[in-house]
Simulated scan of single mutants.
Amino acid sequence: MNFEEAVVKVKDIPNGKLSQDELLNLYALFKQHTVGDIPSDSSRPGVFALKDRYKWDAWKKLDGMTKEQAGEEYAILVEELLAKYL
């Protein structure tokens, strides 16, 4: 499965099944593949925007990962989650 197929297939996972960590990993890998590293002019969201802060932190951990590697890891993660939840 490639990245584009994984983006479509991830929607097959029933709502409410994925853990917070799984959702954050999917988000971070998706952003790293589609955008790359967090822009240098982007600042970490404040403590009153916890959801955005968690997403920013998850994406920031992937700084330096290539877009290709992030796409491959996204597809692998989706395959694992499909096997786990379907």
Rank of each mutant, 00 (worst) to 15 (best):
A28G: 02
L18G: 02
D12Y: 13
K9F: 00
A49Q: 12
N2M: 14
I38M: 02
L29I: 01
A75L: 05
Y27G: 01
F3W: 09
S40K: 15
L86I: 09
V78A: 03
D12I: 09
Q20V: 11
R53L: 08
A58V: 06
M1H: 14
A70I: 02
L77I: 07
E22C: 12
R44T: 13
K60D: 07
A49P: 07
W59N: 02
L50C: 02
E5T: 09
G46N: 13
R53W: 12
K60P: 02
D37K: 13
K17I: 00
K11Q: 04
V8N: 07
G36C: 06
V47Q: 15
K55A: 03
L86H: 01
T66S: 08
K11C: 02
L86N: 10
Q69A: 12
V8L: 07
L62V: 06
P39Q: 01
S42K: 09
K67Y: 05
A83I: 12
G64R: 07
L82T: 11
Q32V: 04
E80I: 15
P39C: 01
F30E: 07
F3Q: 15
A6P: 09
E4N: 05
V8G: 01
A49C: 13
D21R: 04
K60N: 14
L29F: 04
N15G: 09
L26V: 01
L26D: 03
Q32A: 01
N2A: 10
M1L: 13
N2W: 13
D12A: 08
D63M: 14
E79A: 00
E79L: 01
L23A: 10
D37S: 05
R44Q: 12
A75Q: 07
E73T: 14
E4F: 03
E72Y: 13
L18F: 00
D63Q: 13
L29H: 03
A49G: 11
D41W: 09
I38R: 09
D37P: 05
D52M: 09
L62E: 10
Y27I: 05
Y54P: 00
K61P: 05
E80C: 14
K84M: 05
A28Q: 02
V47Y: 13
L24N: 00
G16Q: 10
S43N: 07
V10S: 12
K55E: 09
K51V: 14
K9C: 03
K31H: 04
L29D: 01
G36M: 06
E22V: 06
K51D: 14
R44F: 08
A6Y: 05
N25W: 05
L23R: 11
N2I: 10
F48N: 10
I13M: 02
F3M: 13
A28M: 03
Y85D: 07
G36H: 11
V7I: 06
Y85E: 02
K31S: 10
G36A: 14
